[in-house]
Amino acid sequence: MEIRNILSKKSAKLLVLLLINMLIVTVSAAMYYSLSMTSTIDVYAAEVYFKEGTDNGTSGLVVMLGGQNTTAVITGLRAYPNASLTYTDPIRVRNNASAGTYAQLRLVPVTNPSGNADQFVYIKFMLNATTAEYKWLNYTSDGSTWTNPTGATSWTVTGIDGGEEWPIVIYTMANATATATSSVTIEITVDVD
């Protein structure tokens, strides 16, 4: 009888502990699961965006900015046969944050020239950082094929300060024998860190 009592006492204690522990372990696991779900991401307007440069509207050059100014299409860029042409300020990258808030930038090739390699000599894009941290994406042609950038440029070191605007300079040159109707399309992105 005594042994039975002890056994039942121990069993009852074990059962109580089991239930309590199961409860603690379950709610802890649920808490951990909710922790992994807690990360919240809020949507903010982009601090770094495109802006038309002073070349916009001159000689048929048109900069069309997309929604939130985070995309831009430049049309009307010209390339003269056997003569280089420089657009010093067709489009800008603006950091709209407060002064002292730096953003690092780099140029990244997305879509290589669509064709007409025999019509062009080069098309170059340069991120004209005011601190002389120039970042180049050069597309050059040997008269038959394009030589394209193999990857992104390096990141800027100091970066663009809040309130600053950096132009993307575009250099073009067509082949001496190029025909007037030839065109090429290139797509690049500006990465922001």
Partner: peptide
């Protein structure tokens, strides 16, 4: 797959304490 959060170690510890509680009860 979800990455391991640092709190995973706390969860592991909770399980260990629960295990210790049960075993010490068995060997009371």
């Amino acid at each position: 797959a979800s990455p391991i959060l640092p709190e995973f170690f706390a969860l592991l510890s909770v399980d260990l304490f629960a295990l210790l509680s049960m075993l010490t009860c068995l060997l009371e």
